[in-house]
Amino acid sequence: MLKVAYLHAGTDEVEILKGVNLYVREGEIHVIFGPNGSGKSTLFHVIIGSRKYTIKKGRIFFKGEDVTELGINERSRLGIGIAFQKPPTVKGLRLIDLVRLLLSKYKRVSEDEVLKFSEMLGVEHLLEREVNRGFSGGELKKGELIQLFAQDPDLIMLDEPDSGVDMESVEVIGRAIEIMLRRKDGRSAIIVTHTGEILDHLNADVAHMMIDGRIVCMGEPDEILDSIRRWGYSGCLERCMRGETLGNKGGDKKG
């Protein structure tokens, strides 16, 4: 589905991504952990094609096509969808009007289905509101999911869907992601998470740890999360580098 090869990217002044490799197969859910400033959000922005960043080296392939030179909207039309961590407010534009625009563009989902999805998220009232204007933390995340649902992409990238959100909302967000993925066979997702809370409600296949612009470690999501919780990012990285088994079982054996 997605292949990111040896990606170096950043702003004009700073290189943020220092050789990222990422391979997401059809039907897989990947999780990316990492401390603040490690480049997780930048990776998403570069994959979607944000003009804030320039690619210095490396390529991005989506469904076998090289999309490195494509514009943002071309990538999204191919089926890449993103839920931003901190989406901007678009004043005067009601969420429902944006949704209708997306429905008419993609023609995959009906307005009725969007309404049901919004009800499931418990935020159907947001549709009448201006996009992201005065939304709470949880409402921002849910508003993003509603837009993604209307867009119906094959690859869903979610940037911190569980941060600044109460526990009940994390559960319902997890369910919403599953609903979106199940709409079509072979859909994939990449989830950036800080806390890993979303993993209580979603079964991920592969986890990565990103530190200082590189993906330094790959493994079972539960094990990596457990390792980070026990030893912190640096401790987890050390063990990963030494090739030790991560997670509970590994830790118990050594202890």
Binding site: G49, K52, S76, P87, G92, L101, Y106
Partner: peptide
């Protein structure tokens, strides 16, 4: 705002559509 243009483009709107949608929002009252 460039951030808003990119936001709408990430949903599949062209740059012109994004600007016109943002201007439309600005004018709506």
């Amino acid at each position: 705002a460039e951030e808003e243009i990119e936001y709408l483009m990430s949903r599949g709107l062209s740059e012109e559509e994004s600007i016109s949608t943002i201007v439309g929002g600005f004018l709506s009252f």
